[in-house]
């Protein structure tokens, strides 16, 4: 069975610029994948390819096991970073367009969402703040109870209370079996709502893992020696070690996995003190995008 969201070796060139470079990613039903990456890493282009707005130079995309067709959009919702609304139309008009366009549209659900985001349906789109525009886009997206959700910065412009509401909407949808891929600059949101994380850098997918596995494996072992640090032998060559930092008598080994064994190897060199430091997702993210080791 193919995952509801599936990319296989997706590559997108714009002239000589490689925006997306051989990305393969699956998001299973009931799963939430958080996509992180610096600006220009290729997140939005990946979304465009997924939705058929851009044609990949090579690679394959499947939504719910099949290539995109107009019918795919009956169960797929997309929230772009900048919500595209009709300026002179009211929020109610936008909902009416959805009612006419989607068999899966649920008016009761739409009313719940309007109340959740405190939106006045009689307001025209051009009078809405950035956060309210995002809220309208989210209301439309969730009103069809989609089985596949693709959200580009879904909380941009929203206050912290409504940001939390967005996470709860994603969690509720995933608990009911939806597959969700969302990008965010807020690592804390990914840490809460996602079970897996994908990190892009310069068009490439450099991390694709379960968050818990990532946190379990990636740690810093810090050893302080009495004098200058001794010869570390081939520690840096150990595939479980991402990087070694050394300042005076302090040695820090960043591990990808097997932190206990690496700690034992360092302990055998008789340090004065040794400790293991847990890393949160933000630190893991920074390690991934700043280093060249991966």
């Amino acid at each position: 069975m193919t995952a509801p969201i599936s990319l296989r070796g997706v590559t997108k060139h714009y002239g000589s610029f490689v925006a997306v470079d051989d990305v393969s990613l699956d998001v299973e039903a009931g799963s939430i994948c958080g996509l992180l990456g610096p600006n220009g890493a290729g997140k939005t282009t990946t979304f465009k390819c997924l939705l058929g707005f851009a044609k990949p130079t090579s690679g394959a995309i499947a939504i719910e096991g099949a290539p995109l067709t107009p019918a795919t959009f009956e169960s797929l919702a997309y929230v772009p970073e900048r919500a595209t609304l009709y300026d002179d139309f009211t929020i109610a008009d936008h909902l009416e367009i959805y009612r006419r366009s989607y068999k899966s549209y649920e008016p009761a659900r739409a009313r719940e969402l309007l109340a959740l985001f405190e939106l006045d349906p009689s307001k025209r789109a051009k009078r809405l703040s950035k956060g309210m525009r995002t809220a309208v886009a989210l209301t439309l997206a969730f009103s069809i109870r989609p089985r596949v959700l693709i959200l580009d910065e879904p909380s941009s412009g929203l206050d912290p209370v409504h940001q939390r509401n967005v996470l709860d909407l994603m969690i509720d949808a995933a608990a009911n079996g939806a597959a969700i891929l969302f990008s965010s600059h807020q690592v804390g949101q990914v840490e809460r709502a996602a079970d897996s994380v994908a990190i892009m850098k310069k068009g490439q997918l450099i991390v694709n893992s379960g968050i818990d596995d990532l946190k379990t494996g990636e740690k810093i072992i810090e050893a302080v020696f009495a004098g200058p640090a001794p010869d570390l032998g081939d520690l840096a060559g150990d595939p479980r070690v991402l990087r070694i930092e050394q300042v005076g008598s302090t040695v820090r080994a960043v591990t990808r996995e097997g932190s206990d064994e690496i700690a034992q190897r360092l302990f055998a060199l008789h340090p004065k003190s040794i400790r293991t430091i847990d890393l949160n997702l933000e630190e893991i993210f920074m390690n991934a995008v700043s280093g060249d080791q991966r």
Binding site: G30, S31, I32, R164, L167, D168, I171, D172, A174, A175, N176, R192, A193, A194, D195, D212
Partner: peptide
């Protein structure tokens, strides 16, 4: 689902 929503954490977690 109820606990995931109460804590705002992923249901698979």
């Amino acid at each position: 689902k109820a606990l995931a929503l109460e804590l705002t954490v992923n249901p698979n977690t």
